[in-house]
Amino acid sequence: MTIAIAVARRSSPIVAIASVGVMGVIVFSQRDDAPWGKSFSWSLKFSASILLIRTFIGVTIGVPVPGTNIFSLPVIPLPHWMPGIRIGGAVTAERLSSALSEGVIICALIIIFGAAASLTSPHKLLRILPIFMYEFGVAVVISTSLVPQLVSSVGRIRQAQKLRGQSTKGFASYRRLAIPLLEESLARSLDLAAAMDSRGYGISRLRSRYRPIQWRLPDSAIVLCGLIVMTLT
């Protein structure tokens, strides 16, 4: 896992994609929650809640799995056109463990993406994007820089609405929020696109690197391992 973090830190797209694959495969094969530390706490929290919901649903709803019975829940009768599916009933150890492990997989994926997102900035990924993806590059920069800006705008506009003595709950408040938010995002996106244009983005077909990202031996080794693991599983 620490190797995977190191790879992602190098922020090369190929290595990043491969390392996501590597991480995914590792977690997939291990079926274990990875210890990501404090920096990924949000993805941990998020995945934990998903795990709970997933396990609960997995245990209570679905096709009965035979096995050792732990305890029983009252069966809620369903209409006859849903054969084989039931709510409640016997909770077997097998069912619990399969629901748990499936939940853990989903969690692990979320955590990997959370990890990848917190390790490489999308702006860095853009820098290594080939130039023929110019339009795509502009779009990526705009959309990624928009997200943190959106968050702060929402806070600001909600505050302003509170100042006008309006409640910030309910459907109407979202409509009031959406219009200024949309307008502002649009204006800002245009600003950014204009700035990138006037700084010569997309003019030269080639692009140099200020601090080139070096491909080192460990990277190749990791990619190789990843590929091997992928083919094996």
Binding site: R127, R199, G200, Y201, G202, S204, R207, S208
Partner: peptide, 11 residues
């Protein structure tokens, strides 16, 4: 570095 990178200047 951004504008210089897109203009393909040497590192």
């Amino acid at each position: 570095a951004f504008s210089m990178e897109v203009m393909n200047l040497a590192p």
